[in-house]
Measured scan of single mutants.
Amino acid sequence: MGKSNSKLKPEVVEELTRKTYFTEKEVQQWYKGFIKDCPSGQLDAAGFQKIYKQFFPFGDPTKFATFVFNVFDENKDGRIEFSEFIQALSVTSRGTLDEKLRWAFKLYDLDNDGYITRNEMLDIVDAIYQMVGNTVELPEEENTPEKRVDRIFAMMDKNADGKLTLQEFQEGSKADPSIVQALSLYDGLV
């Protein structure tokens, strides 16, 4: 993909415009910024974590950033290329609610087996709590990752089998306004 070129080839721009919710001009602008920050044309896990640390200076986002990195890194080569970056950004910032929920499901399904187990969710929720640090005051019933996961599973795990399917996750998330709101945070920002 033209590693350190400051412009993408027209056919690449066209393809990314088809695969995302961005215009050709927006794709070019994002590429310019991506190459400025990642001259090699790729972003590794350490660089990704560094970006998260800028956004969450009062907590430790390392663990959460690693989980997000793994979802962005579609081809699992340990690096995020621009096409992976822009497609994930498109879903998280401008995707439909169902697209965002499928993306979030992939984030929580750490072993990619098609289910979110209690332990997988606990890993992610714990990482989120570490990331936000003491900057967020949580209600008593959610002031630990374990309590939050218990509440989520009580609401979403309809067949009580200890794991969530994509359908259970989507339906449960849509029924909880706070989850829908959290997924909409990026709307309109890009």
Score class of each variant (00 low, 15 high):
residue 2 G to R: 01
residue 5 N to T: 15
residue 6 S to T: 05
residue 6 S to W: 14
residue 8 L to R: 03
residue 8 L to H: 03
residue 9 K to T: 10
residue 10 P to V: 14
residue 11 E to P: 15
residue 12 V to Y: 13
residue 16 L to P: 15
residue 17 T to K: 09
residue 17 T to Q: 14
residue 19 K to P: 13
residue 19 K to N: 14
residue 21 Y to W: 11
residue 21 Y to P: 02
residue 21 Y to R: 07
residue 24 E to V: 15
residue 25 K to A: 12
residue 25 K to T: 11
residue 25 K to D: 09
residue 26 E to T: 14
residue 27 V to I: 12
residue 29 Q to A: 04
residue 29 Q to L: 15
residue 32 K to D: 03
residue 36 K to D: 08
residue 36 K to M: 08
residue 36 K to H: 01
residue 39 P to H: 00
residue 40 S to K: 06
residue 43 L to Q: 09
residue 46 A to Y: 07
residue 47 G to P: 01
residue 48 F to C: 13
residue 49 Q to D: 03
residue 49 Q to V: 04
residue 53 K to P: 02
residue 53 K to Y: 05
residue 54 Q to T: 00
residue 55 F to K: 13
residue 55 F to C: 05
residue 57 P to W: 04
residue 57 P to G: 06
residue 57 P to E: 00
residue 57 P to D: 00
residue 61 P to T: 03
residue 64 F to R: 10
residue 67 F to A: 13
residue 69 F to A: 04
residue 70 N to K: 04
residue 72 F to L: 11
residue 75 N to C: 10
residue 76 K to Y: 14
residue 80 I to F: 12
residue 81 E to D: 03
residue 82 F to T: 04
residue 83 S to V: 14
residue 84 E to F: 00
residue 88 A to E: 10
residue 88 A to G: 08
residue 90 S to D: 12
residue 90 S to P: 13
residue 92 T to K: 15
residue 93 S to T: 03
residue 98 D to Y: 11
residue 100 K to M: 12
residue 103 W to V: 07
residue 106 K to A: 14
residue 107 L to F: 11
residue 108 Y to M: 11
residue 110 L to Y: 00
residue 111 D to F: 15
residue 112 N to D: 07
residue 115 Y to F: 13
residue 117 T to R: 13
residue 117 T to N: 03
residue 118 R to C: 00
residue 118 R to V: 03
residue 118 R to P: 13
residue 120 E to K: 10
residue 120 E to T: 06
residue 122 L to P: 10
residue 123 D to G: 11
residue 124 I to S: 09
residue 124 I to V: 14
residue 125 V to K: 00
residue 126 D to F: 08
residue 126 D to T: 13
residue 128 I to D: 00
residue 128 I to T: 07
residue 129 Y to S: 07
residue 129 Y to H: 08
residue 133 G to F: 08
residue 134 N to H: 04
residue 136 V to F: 06
residue 139 P to S: 12
residue 142 E to L: 05
residue 143 N to F: 08
residue 143 N to E: 01
residue 146 E to K: 04
residue 149 V to M: 09
residue 150 D to S: 08
residue 150 D to V: 10
residue 152 I to Q: 12
residue 153 F to Q: 06
residue 156 M to V: 10
residue 156 M to N: 08
residue 157 D to A: 11
residue 159 N to R: 01
residue 162 G to I: 11
residue 162 G to D: 12
residue 166 L to K: 04
residue 170 Q to V: 05
residue 171 E to Y: 14
residue 173 S to G: 03
residue 181 Q to H: 07
residue 181 Q to E: 08
residue 182 A to V: 06
residue 185 L to K: 06
residue 186 Y to N: 05
residue 187 D to V: 10
residue 189 L to W: 13
